[in-house]
Design a protein around this nucleic acid. Structure first.
Ligand SMILES: [Mn+2]
Ligand SMILES: [Mn+2]
Ligand SMILES: [Zn+2]
Ligand SMILES: [Zn+2]
Lengths: 139, 139
DNA sequence: ATCCCAAATAGAAATTGTTTCTATTTGCTT
DNA sequence: AAGCAAATAGAAACAATTTCTATTTGGGAT
């Protein structure tokens, strides 16, 4: 279940610690975007000693490894969602504002034209919010 | 020069205070996105007494009035850029990572299809980064 | 299996951007 | 000119994140 993600760590020669595995498993079990404190509280049961800075450090690491994606929220907290993309192709994320589920999608030729309003485009951030199918059925 | 923005305030029955005018003028003079502290430091010369919370309060107000647009940056600070759009039509922003200039653009039919990956789309945030024409000429 | 060391971590403390609170001032209507 | 809700200053609180240092540990080498 979590092998894909653990492999991504090992590929890059990062150690495979119990905490790292637990964080990934926590994302897999929750199926929604999470912030550091929630993860910390959730894992404190399992680890007698667990530092919040470790959570922060690993989430940032996972984000750089393509395991997690950062999610922007109106409050000023960091959020991360598990990235389910099979390959490393550029893609975007859509989050459910009801349940927090994170989906992926590819938007072809979003900026194939590489100049906008005189600006040469270097990169972009696109986050879409909506309601997932599960939540739509419920209501 | 600043009338368009001042009108937007008056339309909504917000008072037209010296500080508000100065903040808008500051944006007009700088032509780049700014954060609260920079504005505060820049305007302290003009106002003997000037509270940072007032800056925060007004920037947020301006953002709600469509005068400013929030800009996301990798550091955890708030940034705002002056919105130059003539009408209130939905649009996006592109920022120059060299000089901080903010441009506008419309992306037609970005999400005319209103369902993505099973999610019903409610709204989206798109920020594009690039190099403006002025900066390209310089380098 | 044991040794070893760079990488990972805990825990406490510091940092700092932002918000809250209250008394005072001020823009604007009457 | 008066009155009042809105706006503000200044200090203080807040809280998310980061830094720091001593300690532990994963995993390659022996
Ligand atoms: Mn993804
Ligand atoms: Mn705009
Ligand atoms: Zn949902
Ligand atoms: Zn530029």
């Amino acid at each position: 279940m979590n092998e894909i993600y653990l492999n991504k760590l090992q590929e890059k020669n990062f150690k495979l610690t119990p905490r790292r595995i637990a964080i990934i498993d926590f994302f897999l079990s929750r199926e929604r975007y999470l912030n550091p404190e929630i993860i910390w509280k959730g894992l404190k049961k399992k680890f007698k000693h667990l530092g919040l800075p470790s959570i922060y450090r690993n989430l940032e690491l996972f984000s750089k490894c393509g395991i997690l994606t950062k999610i922007q929220m109106p409050n000023r907290k960091l959020y991360y969602g598990l990235c389910k993309a099979k390959d490393n192709k550029h893609h975007h994320h859509i989050v459910c504002i009801k349940c927090g589920k994170v989906g992926e999608f590819f938007e072809e030729n979003l900026f194939e034209k590489k100049t906008i309003n005189g600006f040469k485009v270097l990169n972009h951030f696109l986050q879409v919010e909506g309601i997932c199918s599960t939540c739509r059925i419920k209501s």
